[in-house]
Design a protein around this nucleic acid. Structure first.
Length: 411
DNA sequence: CCTCCACCGGAAAGCCGGGTCA
DNA sequence: TGACCCGGCTTTCCGGTGGAGG
Protein backbone atom coordinates (compact mmCIF):
# COMPACT_ATOMS: atom_id res chain seq x y z
CA UNK A 1 0.00 0.00 0.00
CA UNK A 2 1.17 3.48 -0.84
CA UNK A 3 2.35 5.28 2.28
CA UNK A 4 0.10 8.25 1.66
CA UNK A 5 -2.91 6.05 1.20
CA UNK A 6 -2.09 4.39 4.44
CA UNK A 7 -1.78 7.68 6.26
CA UNK A 8 -4.92 9.09 4.74
CA UNK A 9 -7.05 6.04 5.28
CA UNK A 10 -5.77 5.44 8.77
CA UNK A 11 -7.40 8.50 10.25
CA UNK A 12 -9.32 7.17 13.15
CA UNK A 13 -10.51 10.60 14.10
CA UNK A 14 -11.53 12.52 11.01
CA UNK A 15 -14.06 11.59 8.43
CA UNK A 16 -13.78 14.90 6.59
CA UNK A 17 -11.59 17.55 8.06
CA UNK A 18 -12.47 20.26 5.52
CA UNK A 19 -15.91 20.64 7.02
CA UNK A 20 -14.26 22.39 9.94
CA UNK A 21 -12.50 24.99 7.84
CA UNK A 22 -14.13 28.38 7.63
CA UNK A 23 -14.11 28.34 3.85
CA UNK A 24 -16.71 25.60 4.00
CA UNK A 25 -20.30 26.77 3.55
CA UNK A 26 -22.71 24.34 5.19
CA UNK A 27 -26.13 23.70 3.72
CA UNK A 28 -27.78 24.94 6.86
CA UNK A 29 -26.78 27.86 9.05
CA UNK A 30 -28.07 27.42 12.58
CA UNK A 31 -29.35 30.53 14.38
CA UNK A 32 -29.11 32.78 11.37
CA UNK A 33 -32.61 32.34 9.96
CA UNK A 34 -33.58 35.89 10.69
CA UNK A 35 -30.57 37.37 8.89
CA UNK A 36 -31.00 35.01 5.96
CA UNK A 37 -34.63 36.00 5.56
CA UNK A 38 -33.88 39.69 5.71
CA UNK A 39 -31.08 39.40 3.21
CA UNK A 40 -33.15 37.31 0.83
CA UNK A 41 -36.07 39.71 1.03
CA UNK A 42 -33.87 42.64 0.17
CA UNK A 43 -32.17 40.87 -2.72
CA UNK A 44 -35.32 39.33 -4.21
CA UNK A 45 -36.11 42.27 -6.55
CA UNK A 46 -32.98 41.34 -8.49
CA UNK A 47 -34.95 38.49 -9.97
CA UNK A 48 -37.24 41.02 -11.61
CA UNK A 49 -34.37 43.12 -12.93
CA UNK A 50 -34.93 45.70 -10.26
CA UNK A 51 -32.02 47.13 -8.29
CA UNK A 52 -31.93 45.74 -4.78
CA UNK A 53 -31.13 48.20 -2.00
CA UNK A 54 -27.53 48.50 -1.01
CA UNK A 55 -26.82 46.73 2.24
CA UNK A 56 -24.40 47.15 5.07
CA UNK A 57 -23.74 44.14 7.24
CA UNK A 58 -22.18 44.47 10.66
CA UNK A 59 -20.90 41.92 13.10
CA UNK A 60 -17.74 40.79 14.79
CA UNK A 61 -15.51 38.10 13.34
CA UNK A 62 -16.98 34.65 13.29
CA UNK A 63 -20.61 35.69 13.52
CA UNK A 64 -21.45 34.11 10.19
CA UNK A 65 -21.60 37.22 8.02
CA UNK A 66 -19.62 35.87 5.13
CA UNK A 67 -21.15 32.42 5.38
CA UNK A 68 -24.65 33.88 5.31
CA UNK A 69 -23.94 36.08 2.32
CA UNK A 70 -22.34 33.18 0.49
CA UNK A 71 -25.27 30.98 1.33
CA UNK A 72 -27.88 33.44 0.14
CA UNK A 73 -25.94 34.36 -3.00
CA UNK A 74 -25.63 30.76 -3.96
CA UNK A 75 -29.37 30.31 -3.69
CA UNK A 76 -30.03 33.50 -5.57
CA UNK A 77 -27.78 32.51 -8.43
CA UNK A 78 -29.36 29.10 -8.52
CA UNK A 79 -32.89 30.47 -8.81
CA UNK A 80 -31.88 33.11 -11.30
CA UNK A 81 -30.36 30.53 -13.60
CA UNK A 82 -33.54 28.49 -13.36
CA UNK A 83 -35.70 31.52 -14.17
CA UNK A 84 -33.24 32.56 -16.84
CA UNK A 85 -32.58 35.91 -15.22
CA UNK A 86 -29.12 37.40 -15.63
CA UNK A 87 -28.25 37.94 -12.04
CA UNK A 88 -24.81 37.38 -10.59
CA UNK A 89 -23.06 37.96 -7.32
CA UNK A 90 -19.45 39.04 -7.38
CA UNK A 91 -17.57 38.49 -4.17
CA UNK A 92 -14.56 40.63 -3.34
CA UNK A 93 -12.43 40.27 -0.25
CA UNK A 94 -11.11 43.74 0.42
CA UNK A 95 -8.29 42.44 2.50
CA UNK A 96 -6.68 41.30 -0.74
CA UNK A 97 -8.31 43.71 -3.14
CA UNK A 98 -7.95 46.89 -1.23
CA UNK A 99 -7.76 49.73 -3.70
CA UNK A 100 -10.19 51.38 -6.04
CA UNK A 101 -8.20 50.23 -9.04
CA UNK A 102 -8.18 46.61 -7.96
CA UNK A 103 -11.88 46.55 -7.14
CA UNK A 104 -12.78 47.84 -10.59
CA UNK A 105 -10.32 45.49 -12.25
CA UNK A 106 -11.69 42.55 -10.31
CA UNK A 107 -15.26 43.28 -11.38
CA UNK A 108 -14.29 43.88 -14.99
CA UNK A 109 -12.24 40.72 -15.15
CA UNK A 110 -15.07 38.67 -13.70
CA UNK A 111 -17.16 39.89 -16.62
CA UNK A 112 -14.68 38.78 -19.20
CA UNK A 113 -12.36 41.74 -19.55
CA UNK A 114 -8.65 41.34 -19.20
CA UNK A 115 -7.38 44.15 -17.04
CA UNK A 116 -3.80 43.85 -15.77
CA UNK A 117 -2.94 44.05 -12.08
CA UNK A 118 -1.52 47.51 -12.46
CA UNK A 119 -0.33 49.99 -15.02
CA UNK A 120 -3.51 51.57 -16.36
CA UNK A 121 -5.11 54.84 -15.31
CA UNK A 122 -7.89 54.20 -12.83
CA UNK A 123 -10.53 56.06 -14.81
CA UNK A 124 -9.77 53.90 -17.81
CA UNK A 125 -10.37 50.78 -15.72
CA UNK A 126 -13.58 52.36 -14.46
CA UNK A 127 -14.79 52.85 -18.03
CA UNK A 128 -13.88 49.31 -19.01
CA UNK A 129 -15.78 48.01 -16.03
CA UNK A 130 -18.79 50.12 -16.94
CA UNK A 131 -18.73 48.85 -20.50
CA UNK A 132 -18.46 45.28 -19.33
CA UNK A 133 -21.36 45.70 -16.94
CA UNK A 134 -23.58 47.43 -19.43
CA UNK A 135 -23.03 44.98 -22.24
CA UNK A 136 -26.31 43.31 -21.42
CA UNK A 137 -29.38 43.52 -19.27
CA UNK A 138 -28.38 42.12 -15.90
CA UNK A 139 -28.20 42.65 -12.18
CA UNK A 140 -24.82 42.46 -10.56
CA UNK A 141 -24.48 42.33 -6.81
CA UNK A 142 -21.04 43.26 -5.59
CA UNK A 143 -20.11 41.93 -2.18
CA UNK A 144 -17.33 43.84 -0.49
CA UNK A 145 -16.13 41.74 2.40
CA UNK A 146 -14.01 43.48 5.04
CA UNK A 147 -15.09 46.76 3.52
CA UNK A 148 -13.37 48.71 6.29
CA UNK A 149 -10.02 47.70 4.79
CA UNK A 150 -11.03 49.36 1.55
CA UNK A 151 -12.36 52.46 3.20
CA UNK A 152 -9.09 53.07 5.00
CA UNK A 153 -7.57 53.97 1.66
CA UNK A 154 -10.26 56.43 0.73
CA UNK A 155 -13.94 56.18 -0.04
CA UNK A 156 -13.72 57.01 -3.73
CA UNK A 157 -14.26 53.41 -4.76
CA UNK A 158 -17.50 53.27 -2.81
CA UNK A 159 -18.57 56.66 -4.00
CA UNK A 160 -18.19 55.64 -7.62
CA UNK A 161 -19.71 52.24 -7.10
CA UNK A 162 -22.85 53.50 -5.39
CA UNK A 163 -23.39 56.12 -8.04
CA UNK A 164 -22.72 53.96 -11.04
CA UNK A 165 -26.35 53.03 -11.71
CA UNK A 166 -27.12 56.46 -13.10
CA UNK A 167 -24.51 55.89 -15.79
CA UNK A 168 -25.72 52.48 -16.84
CA UNK A 169 -28.34 51.75 -19.48
CA UNK A 170 -28.91 48.02 -19.14
CA UNK A 171 -27.27 46.79 -16.00
CA UNK A 172 -28.12 47.36 -12.37
CA UNK A 173 -25.50 47.25 -9.66
CA UNK A 174 -26.06 46.86 -5.99
CA UNK A 175 -23.50 46.71 -3.23
CA UNK A 176 -23.31 44.63 -0.09
CA UNK A 177 -20.69 45.81 2.37
CA UNK A 178 -19.53 43.55 5.16
CA UNK A 179 -17.69 45.07 8.07
CA UNK A 180 -16.60 43.98 11.48
CA UNK A 181 -15.60 47.46 12.46
CA UNK A 182 -18.70 49.10 13.83
CA UNK A 183 -17.38 52.60 13.60
CA UNK A 184 -16.00 52.39 10.09
CA UNK A 185 -18.81 54.62 8.87
CA UNK A 186 -17.13 57.58 10.48
CA UNK A 187 -14.44 57.48 7.81
CA UNK A 188 -17.03 57.86 5.10
CA UNK A 189 -18.51 60.75 3.23
CA UNK A 190 -22.12 61.24 4.42
CA UNK A 191 -23.40 60.86 0.86
CA UNK A 192 -21.72 57.48 0.58
CA UNK A 193 -23.13 56.40 3.93
CA UNK A 194 -26.68 57.22 2.99
CA UNK A 195 -26.57 55.39 -0.31
CA UNK A 196 -24.59 52.46 0.97
CA UNK A 197 -26.65 51.79 4.04
CA UNK A 198 -30.12 51.80 2.59
CA UNK A 199 -30.50 48.61 4.58
CA UNK A 200 -28.52 47.39 7.53
CA UNK A 201 -28.26 43.96 9.01
CA UNK A 202 -26.55 43.28 12.31
CA UNK A 203 -25.11 39.92 13.21
CA UNK A 204 -24.99 39.45 16.96
CA UNK A 205 -22.33 37.19 18.46
CA UNK A 206 -23.30 33.60 19.11
CA UNK A 207 -23.74 32.50 22.68
CA UNK A 208 -22.34 29.24 24.01
CA UNK A 209 -25.57 27.33 23.33
CA UNK A 210 -25.68 28.43 19.72
CA UNK A 211 -22.02 27.66 19.19
CA UNK A 212 -22.70 24.20 20.51
CA UNK A 213 -25.34 23.64 17.85
CA UNK A 214 -22.98 24.82 15.14
CA UNK A 215 -20.18 22.59 16.32
CA UNK A 216 -22.44 19.60 16.64
CA UNK A 217 -23.72 20.06 13.12
CA UNK A 218 -20.20 20.17 11.72
CA UNK A 219 -18.78 17.52 14.01
CA UNK A 220 -21.27 15.01 12.67
CA UNK A 221 -19.76 15.44 9.21
CA UNK A 222 -16.17 15.89 10.26
CA UNK A 223 -15.52 13.19 12.80
CA UNK A 224 -16.09 9.48 12.93
CA UNK A 225 -18.87 8.48 15.21
CA UNK A 226 -18.09 8.40 18.89
CA UNK A 227 -14.55 9.75 18.81
CA UNK A 228 -15.44 12.97 20.58
CA UNK A 229 -15.68 12.93 24.34
CA UNK A 230 -18.96 14.33 25.50
CA UNK A 231 -17.53 17.43 27.03
CA UNK A 232 -15.34 18.41 24.07
CA UNK A 233 -17.96 20.38 22.17
CA UNK A 234 -19.37 22.20 25.19
CA UNK A 235 -15.84 23.08 26.22
CA UNK A 236 -14.91 24.47 22.81
CA UNK A 237 -18.16 26.43 22.70
CA UNK A 238 -17.62 27.88 26.13
CA UNK A 239 -14.09 28.99 25.30
CA UNK A 240 -15.14 30.59 22.04
CA UNK A 241 -18.14 32.24 23.65
CA UNK A 242 -15.82 34.02 26.03
CA UNK A 243 -14.02 35.43 23.04
CA UNK A 244 -17.04 37.37 21.80
CA UNK A 245 -18.86 34.38 20.34
CA UNK A 246 -16.54 33.70 17.47
CA UNK A 247 -17.68 30.61 15.57
CA UNK A 248 -14.53 30.60 13.52
CA UNK A 249 -12.46 30.26 16.65
CA UNK A 250 -14.71 27.50 17.93
CA UNK A 251 -14.28 25.55 14.72
CA UNK A 252 -10.53 26.04 14.71
CA UNK A 253 -10.39 24.83 18.25
CA UNK A 254 -12.30 21.70 17.42
CA UNK A 255 -10.24 20.98 14.34
CA UNK A 256 -6.88 21.50 16.03
CA UNK A 257 -7.98 19.40 18.98
CA UNK A 258 -8.74 16.61 16.57
CA UNK A 259 -5.42 17.04 14.83
CA UNK A 260 -3.54 16.85 18.09
CA UNK A 261 -5.46 13.76 19.13
CA UNK A 262 -4.67 12.18 15.81
CA UNK A 263 -0.99 12.96 16.06
CA UNK A 264 -0.89 11.44 19.50
CA UNK A 265 -2.50 8.34 18.08
CA UNK A 266 -5.31 8.71 20.51
CA UNK A 267 -8.58 7.01 19.75
CA UNK A 268 -10.66 9.76 21.20
CA UNK A 269 -10.59 13.52 21.40
CA UNK A 270 -10.63 14.67 25.00
CA UNK A 271 -10.82 17.83 27.00
CA UNK A 272 -7.05 17.69 27.40
CA UNK A 273 -6.62 17.88 23.66
CA UNK A 274 -8.72 21.01 23.58
CA UNK A 275 -6.53 22.59 26.20
CA UNK A 276 -3.46 21.79 24.15
CA UNK A 277 -5.17 23.20 21.09
CA UNK A 278 -5.76 26.52 22.81
CA UNK A 279 -2.06 26.84 23.51
CA UNK A 280 -1.03 25.72 20.06
CA UNK A 281 -3.31 28.14 18.27
CA UNK A 282 -2.06 31.05 20.32
CA UNK A 283 1.61 30.33 19.83
CA UNK A 284 1.18 29.55 16.14
CA UNK A 285 -0.47 32.86 15.52
CA UNK A 286 2.27 34.82 17.18
CA UNK A 287 5.16 33.02 15.56
CA UNK A 288 3.58 33.33 12.17
CA UNK A 289 3.06 37.03 12.67
CA UNK A 290 6.64 37.52 13.84
CA UNK A 291 8.11 35.42 11.08
CA UNK A 292 6.48 37.46 8.36
CA UNK A 293 7.50 40.79 9.83
CA UNK A 294 9.72 43.05 7.70
CA UNK A 295 13.37 43.00 8.76
CA UNK A 296 13.21 46.49 10.20
CA UNK A 297 10.40 45.50 12.52
CA UNK A 298 12.25 42.38 13.53
CA UNK A 299 15.30 44.37 14.53
CA UNK A 300 13.10 46.82 16.39
CA UNK A 301 11.43 43.99 18.24
CA UNK A 302 14.77 42.41 19.01
CA UNK A 303 15.86 45.67 20.57
CA UNK A 304 12.73 45.70 22.67
CA UNK A 305 13.51 42.19 23.86
CA UNK A 306 16.99 43.27 24.89
CA UNK A 307 15.47 46.13 26.84
CA UNK A 308 13.03 43.82 28.57
CA UNK A 309 15.75 41.35 29.45
CA UNK A 310 17.83 44.14 30.91
CA UNK A 311 15.13 44.82 33.43
CA UNK A 312 13.11 47.42 31.60
CA UNK A 313 9.64 45.96 31.76
CA UNK A 314 8.35 49.22 30.31
CA UNK A 315 10.16 51.65 28.07
CA UNK A 316 9.54 54.60 25.77
CA UNK A 317 9.66 55.19 22.04
CA UNK A 318 12.93 57.09 22.38
CA UNK A 319 14.60 54.24 24.25
CA UNK A 320 13.41 51.64 21.79
CA UNK A 321 14.55 53.82 18.92
CA UNK A 322 18.05 54.33 20.23
CA UNK A 323 18.60 50.59 20.72
CA UNK A 324 17.14 49.91 17.32
CA UNK A 325 19.49 52.41 15.77
CA UNK A 326 22.49 50.82 17.41
CA UNK A 327 21.48 47.39 16.23
CA UNK A 328 20.95 48.57 12.67
CA UNK A 329 24.37 50.13 12.47
CA UNK A 330 26.02 46.95 13.63
CA UNK A 331 24.48 44.79 10.98
CA UNK A 332 24.66 47.43 8.29
CA UNK A 333 20.96 47.95 7.93
CA UNK A 334 19.51 51.32 6.95
CA UNK A 335 18.25 53.25 9.93
CA UNK A 336 14.70 54.43 9.54
CA UNK A 337 13.49 57.73 10.90
CA UNK A 338 11.80 57.92 14.25
CA UNK A 339 8.57 58.85 12.55
CA UNK A 340 8.59 55.64 10.60
CA UNK A 341 9.62 53.56 13.60
CA UNK A 342 6.73 55.07 15.45
CA UNK A 343 4.43 53.54 12.85
CA UNK A 344 6.22 50.21 13.10
CA UNK A 345 5.58 50.28 16.83
CA UNK A 346 1.89 50.83 16.19
CA UNK A 347 1.89 47.83 13.85
CA UNK A 348 3.53 45.60 16.44
CA UNK A 349 0.95 46.83 18.89
CA UNK A 350 -1.91 45.94 16.58
CA UNK A 351 -0.51 42.47 16.13
CA UNK A 352 -0.64 42.07 19.88
CA UNK A 353 3.05 41.32 20.13
CA UNK A 354 3.66 44.39 22.22
CA UNK A 355 1.41 46.69 24.16
CA UNK A 356 1.79 50.42 23.83
CA UNK A 357 -0.19 53.26 25.27
CA UNK A 358 0.37 56.96 24.87
CA UNK A 359 1.07 58.55 28.21
CA UNK A 360 2.23 61.91 29.35
CA UNK A 361 5.11 62.21 31.76
CA UNK A 362 4.48 65.88 32.30
CA UNK A 363 7.64 67.86 32.14
CA UNK A 364 9.38 64.83 30.70
CA UNK A 365 7.27 64.76 27.61
CA UNK A 366 4.65 62.68 25.96
CA UNK A 367 5.49 59.28 24.63
CA UNK A 368 4.35 55.74 24.24
CA UNK A 369 4.86 53.40 27.11
CA UNK A 370 5.75 50.07 25.58
CA UNK A 371 5.98 46.59 26.98
CA UNK A 372 6.46 43.25 25.30
CA UNK A 373 3.36 41.12 25.65
CA UNK A 374 4.43 37.76 24.35
CA UNK A 375 6.89 35.38 26.04
CA UNK A 376 10.28 36.74 25.05
CA UNK A 377 11.93 33.36 24.72
CA UNK A 378 9.44 32.32 22.05
CA UNK A 379 9.83 35.58 20.22
CA UNK A 380 13.58 35.34 20.30
CA UNK A 381 13.53 31.86 18.88
CA UNK A 382 11.47 32.94 15.90
CA UNK A 383 13.45 36.12 15.35
CA UNK A 384 16.75 34.30 15.28
CA UNK A 385 15.54 32.14 12.43
CA UNK A 386 16.28 35.18 10.32
CA UNK A 387 19.93 34.99 9.29
CA UNK A 388 20.28 38.74 9.35
CA UNK A 389 19.46 38.76 13.03
CA UNK A 390 21.70 35.90 14.01
CA UNK A 391 24.66 38.23 13.97
CA UNK A 392 23.04 40.39 16.59
CA UNK A 393 23.45 37.70 19.18
CA UNK A 394 27.10 38.55 19.72
CA UNK A 395 26.27 42.15 20.53
CA UNK A 396 23.63 41.28 23.03
CA UNK A 397 25.79 41.40 26.17
CA UNK A 398 27.50 44.48 24.89
CA UNK A 399 24.24 46.32 24.53
CA UNK A 400 22.92 45.15 27.84
CA UNK A 401 25.89 46.62 29.64
CA UNK A 402 25.41 49.77 27.65
CA UNK A 403 21.85 50.02 28.84
CA UNK A 404 22.70 49.27 32.44
CA UNK A 405 25.18 52.12 32.40
CA UNK A 406 22.20 54.22 31.43
CA UNK A 407 24.08 55.86 28.63
CA UNK A 408 21.74 54.88 25.84
CA UNK A 409 24.09 56.73 23.55
CA UNK A 410 25.39 55.83 20.13
CA UNK A 411 28.24 53.45 19.65
C1' DC B 1 -1.87 78.96 35.94
C1' DC B 2 1.62 78.63 32.59
C1' DT B 3 5.61 76.18 30.39
C1' DC B 4 7.73 73.14 27.93
C1' DC B 5 9.29 68.29 27.18
C1' DA B 6 9.43 64.37 23.96
C1' DC B 7 7.18 62.62 21.52
C1' DC B 8 2.36 61.80 18.61
C1' DG B 9 0.30 61.56 14.27
C1' DG B 10 -1.56 64.00 9.93
C1' DA B 11 -0.23 65.63 5.24
C1' DA B 12 2.46 65.70 1.41
C1' DA B 13 5.91 64.49 -1.36
C1' DG B 14 9.80 61.33 -3.11
C1' DC B 15 11.61 56.97 -4.43
C1' DC B 16 11.31 52.42 -6.28
C1' DG B 17 9.81 48.34 -8.54
C1' DG B 18 5.94 46.72 -10.68
C1' DG B 19 3.33 47.45 -14.91
C1' DT B 20 1.02 49.44 -19.83
C1' DC B 21 0.94 51.70 -24.17
C1' DA B 22 2.09 53.81 -28.66
C1' DT C 1 12.13 53.12 -26.23
C1' DG C 2 10.21 56.83 -23.30
C1' DA C 3 6.15 58.63 -21.20
C1' DC C 4 3.12 57.44 -17.92
C1' DC C 5 0.47 54.96 -14.06
C1' DC C 6 0.00 52.46 -9.54
C1' DG C 7 0.95 51.05 -4.75
C1' DG C 8 3.98 50.47 -0.92
C1' DC C 9 7.39 52.25 1.84
C1' DT C 10 9.80 56.07 3.63
C1' DT C 11 11.19 60.87 4.65
C1' DT C 12 10.19 65.69 5.59
C1' DC C 13 7.69 69.01 7.76
C1' DC C 14 5.06 70.47 11.32
C1' DG C 15 1.12 71.54 14.28
C1' DG C 16 -0.56 69.41 18.55
C1' DT C 17 -0.63 67.93 23.49
C1' DG C 18 -1.21 65.87 28.85
C1' DG C 19 0.46 66.98 32.78
C1' DA C 20 4.83 67.55 36.29
C1' DG C 21 7.19 71.14 37.82
C1' DG C 22 8.01 75.88 38.34
Amino acid sequence: MNIFERIVSSSRIFKNRDVLRHTYTPDRLPHRDEQIDTLATILAPALKYETPSNILIYGKTGTGKTATVRFVSRQLEYVSSKLDVRCTVHYINCELIDTQYRVFASIANALGKNIPMTGLPTDYVYCEMKKALDSEKRVVIVVLDEIDKLVKKGDEALYNLTRINSELENAKVSVIGISNDLKFKSYLDPRVISSLSEEEIVFPPYNAEQLKDILEQRAKLAFHEGVLDEDVIPFCSALAAQEHGDARKALDLLRVSGEIAERENSERVTREHVKKAVRKIESDQVSEAVRTLPTQSKVLLFGMIILTESGYAKFTTGEAYSIYRNLCRRIGLDVLTQRRVSDLISELDMLGIINSIVISKGRYGRTREIKVEMPIEDLKKVLLEDYRLENLLKYEKDLKSLISLDTFGDV
